[in-house]
Amino acid sequence: MSDTKAEKRISAVVSKWFYTEPLQFAICTSHAIVPNASLTVPFRSGKKRIEFAPEVLDKLTDEKLLFYLNLEVTRILLGHPYQRKPYNAKPAVLSMASDAVIWQLNTRNRKTDENEFANLPGVQYLKQMAGPHVTFPDMNFEQWYKYILDIVLKSKNAQSAGITSIEGFEDSSENAELWEENEEALNDIKSDIEDAIIKEGYGKDGGEVERAVTQGVDFSFDYRRALSKFRQNVVSSNRKLTRMRPSRRYGFKAMGSRYERKANILIAVDVSGSITDESFEHFIHAIKNFFFLGIIENIDLIFFDVNLKLTKPVSYKKKIDLKEVKGMGGTNFQVPADYYAEHKSEYSGMIIFTDGDGEPPQIDGCASVLWILDSRINFEKSRQWITKICNCQATFLPF
């Protein structure tokens, strides 16, 4: 940032947060804070940065600047700029949904809606369309998006003059222009919140929202974090020594090492009769989301119920037709376990997508295996027997 009046005021707030609001401070320091003279809103976030409008901030009191900066940090803590967006998402509605969630959290904690959060564009729009004293349901971000989008599309303004004619729509759209899915950023945010939980570092002001954020977050069973841990195990297994001859002082104990950042993974997908088409699509979507990060050299897919459905593995790059692999029988986990054992030299690890309905297999050699269940309920039913198998982890898809 350049040394402007606005920058100095922001720096003063962030510096104070170092002592009073450790969680907000951690979020600010994990994002680049940069000026954007073209903005008409005080702050906006996304793409690992927080942008501010110098001229807009110059007209705000210190109290208002603090409010808007804290508002943007709260959006980040909630993960709104980095979550997966609905198909063909409208940025303005995303921003309004974020406003609604934040207003809802503050209203719930402070037992009143007479606060500045009630003046957010998204909340004002809702009250304008549904009435100032309406009681809104307790919903998450995605539910609010669908709820507001339905109201917007049914409004007379949207029907007659177009969706952008609605008052405040353009400003809300500007708020969310930088928003895009970023799983790495979400993991970093969750790590900051975990640190705050461990260290009780919420701060003395504004802690209500942060605590409310964490109430619905299950860090232990987040499938993205489980995948990251699995990835680390796979990469670590590819350690190679780099020293060609022993050190004179320490011998071979001081040898250098490097890690291959590529790995071959076998993914076994349960296609038995108990697996729904929806679960299958969720499996494929999860594979796409994670492995597009580029750390996997090759992904082989096998499909099974009581036996293998294809004679050889399928490359992930090939479009999968569920009709070609769908089974009708039960589930035999020994089938993918045996295949993995027979081809162990070809793979660094195996992931099994399943509903967990079957007998535990015998997996020899303490192979690195991650089981991903299709729901929280099935995860709770299966995790105990899965984690008893050597070097097996378990998690579930939150869809």
Rank of each mutant, 00 (worst) to 15 (best):
292 F>R: 14
292 F>V: 08
356 G>R: 05
302 I>R: 05
98 S>T: 13
233 N>G: 11
289 N>L: 13
312 K>Y: 07
202 Y>H: 09
337 A>Y: 11
209 V>Q: 04
81 P>N: 09
203 G>K: 08
142 E>H: 14
257 S>N: 09
16 K>L: 09
240 K>H: 01
377 I>H: 07
92 A>D: 04
308 L>K: 05
253 K>D: 11
23 L>W: 01
333 F>K: 08
34 V>I: 15
28 C>A: 15
2 S>P: 14
184 E>W: 04
190 K>D: 13
383 R>Q: 10
95 S>D: 03
150 D>K: 15
301 L>H: 04
67 F>Q: 06
132 P>I: 08
210 E>M: 14
66 L>Y: 06
30 S>A: 14
255 M>I: 02
109 N>R: 07
122 G>T: 08
31 H>F: 12
146 K>D: 12
305 D>V: 03
301 L>D: 04
252 F>L: 11
314 V>H: 09
89 A>E: 03
243 R>E: 09
23 L>G: 03
386 I>P: 03
381 K>A: 04
123 V>C: 11
180 E>W: 01
194 E>Y: 12
135 T>Y: 07
163 I>D: 06
47 K>C: 06
252 F>D: 13
95 S>I: 02
99 D>M: 07
289 N>V: 12
390 C>G: 06
197 I>M: 12
94 L>F: 00
383 R>T: 01
178 L>N: 12
303 F>R: 08
321 D>Y: 14
153 L>W: 02
188 D>G: 02
205 D>M: 09
281 E>W: 00
35 P>E: 08
186 L>N: 11
261 R>C: 00
236 S>C: 00
154 K>M: 11
12 A>Y: 06
8 K>G: 02
296 I>Q: 10
280 F>W: 05
100 A>W: 07
138 D>N: 14
267 I>D: 02
11 S>P: 01
244 M>P: 03
278 E>M: 06
394 A>I: 01
295 I>L: 13
200 E>H: 12
357 D>K: 09
6 A>S: 15
18 F>V: 00
368 S>H: 13
374 D>R: 05
174 E>V: 12
45 S>H: 04
13 V>P: 00
65 L>P: 01
370 L>I: 01
187 N>D: 12
11 S>K: 12
69 L>N: 04
117 F>R: 05
177 E>F: 05
339 Y>P: 10
153 L>T: 08
103 W>N: 11
378 N>R: 11
338 D>C: 03
216 G>F: 09
8 K>C: 02
393 Q>W: 03
189 I>T: 11
43 F>G: 10
162 G>Y: 10
104 Q>S: 15
3 D>E: 13
237 S>T: 04
231 R>H: 06
394 A>T: 02
128 Q>A: 15
342 E>R: 15
182 N>W: 09
214 T>C: 13
29 T>S: 03
